[in-house]
Design a binder for these strands. Structure first.
Length: 155
DNA sequence: GCCAACGTTGGC
DNA sequence: GCCAACGTTGGC
């Protein structure tokens, strides 16, 4: 099956790409996603080996900072069952989990980030979900053309 | 810290 | 099933 491309947002203050670098096996479980569209992408479309841009949101400046790879297919997010967690969801049950997430592994950190301003400046990236007005989706698909363009800029 | 855009919840 | 109220995201 063809590899798909994605973009995943994280606020560096809660989890940065440096945190991922320092994590055991440079791998992390992408828990805490509580948006159905984002969940559906992880749960139903992401496959092991898919690659994702790691995007720092709410950062100075915001931008793409690296690439991660899907290391494990989606499974139920345990934080939804944990009453101590801020991600606890009373409407979720073990029999009927609501929230799923994948594991990702660090692939590379770019020497310099590609900032949101830069991304906006390229006509080649027109139509990219990230750049659409009002787009807040934290997990989003990236077209192969856009993926190739960005990785070429950063190579 | 502000606030626009968006998603979710719950009363009716 | 509508929609107002509320909460969240995320750039600025």
């Amino acid at each position: 099956m063809a590899t798909n491309y994605w973009l995943m947002k994280s606020e560096p203050e809660s989890f940065s790409i440096e945190d991922l670098k320092a994590a055991p096996h440079q791998t992390t479980f992408w828990d805490g996603v509580r948006n159905y569209q984002a969940r559906n992408f992880m749960w139903q479309e992401m496959r092991v080996g898919d690659r994702c841009f790691f995007y720092h949101s709410n950062a100075k400046p915001p931008g793409i900072v690296g690439i991660v790879k899907v290391a494990k297919q989606a499974y139920p997010d345990p934080t939804q069952f944990d009453t101590q967690s801020k991600y606890y969801d009373a409407k979720a049950s073990l029999e009927k989990p609501r929230w799923y997430a994948v594991e990702v592994k660090l692939e590379r950190i770019f020497k310099q980030l590609l900032s949101l301003d830069q991304l906006k400046s390229y006509p080649e990236l027109e139509g990219m979900t990230l750049l659409k007005k009002g787009s807040r989706l934290s997990i989003q698909p990236v077209s192969k053309a856009h993926w190739d363009f960005v990785t070429k800029k950063l190579s």
